[in-house]
Design a protein around this nucleic acid. Structure first.
Lengths: 368, 368
DNA sequence: TCTACCTGATTAATCGTTTAAGCAGAAAAA
DNA sequence: TTTTTCTGCTTAAACGATTAATCAGGTAGA
């Protein structure tokens, strides 16, 4: 029986055409001097034989693996799929593969993950650092995705501006007492978002910040946040800095019989998968991850290119001036004018805000 | 200034010790014949110079890249982080890297993604196929993670058994009219789960199945599911085959003023990130992804090994007998005995079921 | 003492590609 | 005609590891 051939190499093509392997290489890469006719013949023969170049051999020779590393702080973060997808997309578009590394747990694990990627010879890496950590200079180009206020950062969504969008939205709706909900006090991203919301709300609005880590430190994980008390105290806006916290707030308020959005409003961040399908659908702010990923990968490509040219030198962080990408407000049903403290629910019947609800993740009416 | 040395190679070690590169290789790999003393000296020198083997060169020579591919049907699926994490973990434990590929979109994209991975020379791949697709024989070992009822499958959670856990749980609580909620009619996983739930409920329970795709086909994306009507019709159990659908059901019911779990119960599947933190926390069923990933990777390792031994031959799917891994029931607050149709909410005050709530993802009391 | 065998190393080929250098012949410049 | 330049290809040396084959020298058995 016909043995399945190994995938043919350049020598096979060369032999079939009676030329040298170098000529085949030149013909396919378009680099050396090859007559157009021969180049055509080579290409045709390559296709005919089903030639697939060995990226391994190429990597060995050129010193470039064609692979980027993606280091994630906590792979359980629900934002991760979007980031991974965006990076994988952007990388694939320029012919790169993406090797993932989970740095879940402590900083030591993050360093170890980075080293694993380095050993595998990645040409560059995208790092979404753990909260409050900085990425040291390592032996290859690194694009850090964090928040613009983090020193040494390269590419980021403009979390502060996103916060402003939320703040302005709430104040325009008429909210004058807003509770900000964050999870981790030491997160630069969350602090930027909170700062932005406050700035957007302006001086006339009374704000307080609830850190879930603190509440849970006292009440145990998954405990109630005491939002009903806050409503009683006059809070009508609940601006969480993550859709996960927003969801927690929303369900807790609903559970307590407090109408959203008739009485109070809830907003989130990141447009996570569930935000369009919960009832009421969450008003939130989304990052333009496609753009961020494109910028990150493009910056890496430049750095890799530069490293190849001026050999030995530039192996630092890419793109000294941080790129900040604007966020977009997605207004759905969970936000509205603050209502009276009376009946938690409107008259029974169909959901009053029932309407064409935007779908995840591109829809909604993004507002700059 | 001291130029930063390139990372040294075997020849550097060999030269430093006055031996040949082959000896260094043998000493480090423990394969050839090297005197123990020399081997020690080599190891010490290697550490001293900070030697890092070139996986690329090794891959070229041995034909093994040390990389596995991970193909995902839809990277936006919230289950993905858990899968990716589990696979990355299991792979790292055996010294393998993981290259991701997103086959979002159609089957053509899935095929293309697989080809990209093949070109990159992965030694094997883990595929989570799109709904209702089968993975053709490709040129390397493949571990498919799907559901045991899919033909040609290799490793899977026992979705049917997971469904039975939910079904038995609901019937024991006293539910006699249960609505099953699925999203895609053609999903083998969902059909297995639904079958399991029905089996667990037994013959005495009245069941109906609501397919969200159909509802949305009529009402638009994100529309209401009409669950309030179902409650009016006497349904007290709402068993979604995904936590995302469960969340949708939960918020819709809460929004309609229907108490969960006092009046009706809601259960989900997969123990996704939000299930422990919503109020009430979701009763759900989790897959043992760590075990599944370990099995998948182990099967791939065996296949890769076998392929290396009996050269040319076995490049098919691994492990003919499908491994099915038991799922675990996690009882939280969203399920309870069915209540009277009266007051949607109990007396105000602290959440009656407030208790130490298990945290994500390992906690809860898994019940076989 | 002579052959056989074992030990501990070396040599050299190999994986598949890239690329600098070289070379023969033709075309252009002198 | 001679020199120079260009064209189109080949040669050969990498890249860094693995590994089969070989070899020198010591030891043991006959």
């Amino acid at each position: 029986m016909a043995v399945v051939r190994q995938s043919p190499n350049m020598s096979a093509i060369a032999a079939a055409l009676g030329v040298s392997a170098a000529t085949v290489s030149n013909a396919l890469s378009g680099k050396g001097r090859v007559s157009p006719e021969l180049a055509d013949k080579v290409r045709i023969k390559a296709a005919e034989l089903g030639y697939v170049p060995s990226l391994t051999a190429r990597a060995l020779r050129t010193g470039r693996s064609g692979v980027l590393g993606l280091v994630l702080p906590d792979i359980a973060n629900p934002l991760f799929p979007q980031i991974a997808q965006a990076i994988e997309n952007a990388a694939a578009a320029v012919g790169y593969g993406v090797l993932i590394a989970d740095s879940r747990g402590d900083i030591a694990t993050q360093t170890e993950a980075i080293n694993r990627l380095l050993e595998r010879g990645v040409d560059g890496m995208v790092v979404v650092p753990r909260r409050a950590t900085r990425i040291a200079d390592i032996g290859c180009p690194v694009a850090v995705i964090d928040t613009p206020s983090t020193p040494g950062n390269t590419i980021a969504a403009d979390h502060w501006q996103g916060g402003e969008l939320i703040g302005r939205h709430l104040v325009q709706l008429g909210h004058r007492r807003v509770l900000l909900i964050g999870t981790h006090r030491d997160s630069n991203v969350q602090n930027d978002r909170i700062g932005g919301v406050k700035a957007g709300l302006g001086p006339g609005v009374d704000c307080d910040t609830l850190w879930i880590e603190k509440v849970e430190g006292e009440g145990g994980e998954g405990c109630l946040l005491g939002l009903a008390d806050r409503v009683a105290a006059g809070f009508t806006g609940f601006a969480a800095v993550s859709d996960l916290s927003a969801l927690r707030a929303l369900t807790e308020l609903q559970r307590a019989g407090i109408g959203v959005p008739e009485r109070v409003s809830v907003t989130g961040f990141d447009n996570l998968i569930w935000s369009p399908v919960v009832t009421p659908a969450l008003t939130t702010v989304r990052m333009d991850l496609a753009t961020i990923a494109d910028l990150a990968v493009a910056a890496l490509m430049r750095a890799i290119e530069a490293e190849a040219d001026a050999d030995g030198a530039g192996s630092g962080r890419v793109s000294s001036a941080p790129d900040r990408v604007a966020m977009q407000l997605i207004i759905r049903q969970s936000s509205g004018p603050p209502g009276p403290g009376a009946a938690p629910y409107p008259a029974p019947g169909p959901y009053p805000l029932h309407a064409k609800i935007p779908t995840h993740p591109t829809a909604g009416e993004p507002q700059a």
